[in-house]
Amino acid sequence: MVIRVVVADDQAVVRTAFAGLLGTQPDIEVVGEAEDGAAAVRIAAEHRPDVALLDIRMPGLNGIEAAREIIAASGGATRALMLTTFGLDEYVYDALTAGASGFLLKDATFPELLHAVRVVADGRALLSPDITGRLIAEFTRQRVAAPPARSVEGLTTREVEVLVLIARGLSNGDIADRLTITAHTVKTHINRLFAKMELRDRAQAVILAYELGLVVAGSGAGGSGADGIRAAGPDAGR
């Protein structure tokens, strides 16, 4: 299966470089390039890509708003992978709530770029410890002054435990070891949790856990990277 990708960045050098690198892979096809968010939305509507690689900050319609429109128009079929720099980290939370599935630094290596696109295209969340560990905790903590729109009512005690461990960066295998249950049972709990809370992926689960106050900054346990959040591994899907 060929992964269809749209690349959007207002910096022509960055855009062309990423598109060129992705185009060298037999399993990836760059179906369009865009210089801003509005163009990205138009191109995505025309080509229906699997992944939209979007710079967070672009003139006019920014990458976050573009991601929101692209995801909504595709019914979630197109996944958004955000390009960011350490200087723009304050946008991470907004991008996640807009539906972004992951983040990639603009100075990422070629293998990191390919891995990110393939992970997101596969329906998994890419939560890089270099970006999201500290930031999701910090910016979500700032947002929870208002009462959360959802609660854990309706979740079993075990499902709440699994949600907390997801937010702390544990893979399915790690969760199974921590709770002394099988990996299959973990996956069952995750599927039920996602269905009850209407979560699309682990990125949304992380946001929910912080919004509900189930995990706070500095409480990571067992994960790598700041605050225990780490990239989703091969077994990290639902």
Rank of each mutant, 00 (worst) to 15 (best):
T85Q: 11
G173P: 01
A80M: 14
S224A: 10
D174R: 15
L163R: 04
E69V: 04
R143V: 02
A67I: 05
A209V: 05
A145V: 08
G75D: 15
A44C: 15
H184Q: 08
G32V: 05
A95L: 13
L113E: 03
V41K: 15
E138P: 00
A236T: 12
I71E: 03
D201K: 01
E90M: 07
F18Y: 14
Y93L: 14
G173A: 14
G154I: 02
S74T: 03
E90A: 10
V30H: 02
G75T: 08
D36Y: 01
A100F: 13
G87I: 05
S171R: 14
E198V: 00
A236Y: 09
I28S: 03
D174G: 15
G32K: 06
A226S: 12
T78A: 10
R168C: 04
P129F: 00
E33V: 10
A146R: 13
A203N: 09
A12Y: 11
Q204N: 07
I43N: 10
R230M: 11
I3L: 12
A80P: 13
T182R: 09
A209T: 07
A40K: 09
T188Q: 09
E65K: 02
A100I: 07
M1F: 02
V31W: 01
D89L: 14
T182I: 10
R68I: 01
A217H: 12
G228S: 05
K187S: 05
M1N: 01
A203P: 07
P129I: 00
A67L: 10
I131L: 15
T185I: 00
R202G: 11
E211W: 08
R158S: 13
L21I: 15
H189F: 11
I71C: 00
Y91D: 03
I43K: 13
A8K: 11
G32Y: 05
I3V: 15
V6Y: 04
E112M: 09
G99D: 05
A17E: 15
L53E: 04
L81P: 04
E211L: 13
L126E: 11
M197D: 08
R68M: 02
V117C: 00
V215H: 03
D177C: 06
G154D: 11
D107V: 13
D9L: 01
G75N: 14
A98H: 09
L193Y: 07
L113F: 00
G76H: 00
A231F: 01
A205Q: 06
G37Y: 00
L81C: 03
R168D: 04
H115V: 02
I136K: 03
A146N: 05
V6L: 09
